[in-house]
């Protein structure tokens, strides 16, 4: 265990977040167990007011949780010099492989938490609380994930022993490296680039189609494409675009670009990617809910905004990753 201010902040912050979410989930469960919207009793009114408490708590908690991902990445980046052979955040993760699990759990929260908030917003807008049960069941699941996250974070940092010799990102994300990470990095860049741009074009085309037509199938296709876009983009950022960003044919680490040396370019990249995927994914998830009368109007209204946001985010993301390819003058297609 390393006593480091960032680690302390993560553990203290996440513990508070967990307490908030547990409390919210507890209140939420009590609310939906005795929920009876047709009753005009005082108890029902109290329950309705409690939904605001749950919303308020969970929204703050989830905002902190999302913020904690950035803090986590910055922290593992800051402590990498404690490990022999580690040159960036990847090294810190390799020093205790649970770190990778933490990263994936946090990414899951990053996508799941906003879904909860959107459900919550609709539930409040509808006026007859059609999603109350769905919302609080999902909250229970989220609580488990947040608890798991804290547990893994503690386990990860507790299991870090600074004397461990780690392979740095050069070894992990270089073509000859073993495992999935190495394979991703080894993907041929020309092919990867093709796949990337084709996916983007398909995604944007479907998005346009959804904007113009109300077909349900298009929404589901878009959701699937959004998931594809997510994985294809991450793979191509690691395998191809990173080389242009670092201007090195052998450097593929996805964490270095969070640093000031690369003008924090990772933030627009991953923020753009996450918004594009998230808002592209939403219409598909909410398609079945259009059957609820009190929601239909609101969903149609919001859907337009989601599609437009997703489109803009996609364009932003694609522009930022393509920029160095077009303008850096580095010729790396051969690698």
């Amino acid at each position: 265990m390393i006593l480091h201010p960032g680690i302390l902040a993560l553990i203290v912050g996440s513990s508070i977040v967990l307490m908030m979410v547990i409390y919210g989930s507890f209140v939420g469960t009590r609310v939906w167990l005795s929920w009876d919207f047709n009753s005009s009793s005082e108890e029902q009114l109290v329950l309705e007011r409690k939904t605001f408490l749950v919303s308020s708590i969970v929204r703050y908690a989830l905002a902190f949780e999302v913020f904690s991902i950035l803090l986590f990445i910055s922290t593992i980046d800051d402590i990498h010099q404690l490990f022999v052979g580690a040159m960036c955040a990847t090294g810190s993760l390799n020093a205790n492989p649970i770190g990778w699990v933490v990263l994936f759990v946090k990414m899951g929260i990053l996508l799941l938490a906003p879904v909860w908030v959107v459900l919550d917003i609709f539930d409040q807008k509808a006026g007859d609380y059609p999603l109350i049960r769905a919302k609080y069941v999902l909250l229970q699941f989220l609580t488990v994930v947040v608890a798991l996250d804290l547990f893994l974070v503690i386990k990860y940092f507790a299991g870090l022993h600074p004397e461990i010799i780690t392979s740095c990102c050069g070894a992990l994300f270089s073509e000859s490296g073993p495992g999935v990470a190495g394979e991703i990095a080894a993907l041929p860049s020309a092919g990867m680039m093709w796949l990337f741009y084709v996916t983007v074009v398909f995604f944007l085309a479907t998005l346009m189609f959804c904007l113009l037509h109300r077909a349900a199938a298009a929404r589901y296709v878009l959701a699937v494409l959004a998931v594809m876009l997510f994985f294809v983009s991450i793979a191509s950022v690691i395998s191809t675009f990173s080389m242009y960003i670092y201007q090195l044919p052998t450097h593929h680490c996805p964490f270095d670009m969070f640093q000031g040396n690369y003008s924090y370019v990772a933030y627009p990249i991953f923020l753009g990617l996450f918004s594009a995927v998230f808002f592209g994914f939403l219409p598909g998830i909410f398609q079945p809910l259009k059957k609820v009368t009190s929601l239909e109007k609101h969903i149609f209204e919001a859907e337009k905004k989601w599609l437009v946001t997703s489109g803009i985010a996609t364009i932003l993301f694609v522009t930022v990753v393509s920029w160095p390819v077009v303008f850096s003058g580095v010729e790396l297609m051969g690698y």
């Binding site: 960032g6 993560l10 408490l53 308020s56 708590i57 902190f64 922290t75």
Partner: peptide
């Protein structure tokens, strides 16, 4: 920025956590 984020996480989170329930009580 990282240091600032750490300080922020250590102070703002407890502050918000301790005011959220009282705020709600007032709001309802």
């Amino acid at each position: 920025l990282y240091q600032i984020a750490v300080i922020g996480f250590l102070t703002v989170v407890p502050y918000v956590a301790s005011t959220v329930i009282p705020s709600w009580k007032t709001a309802v």
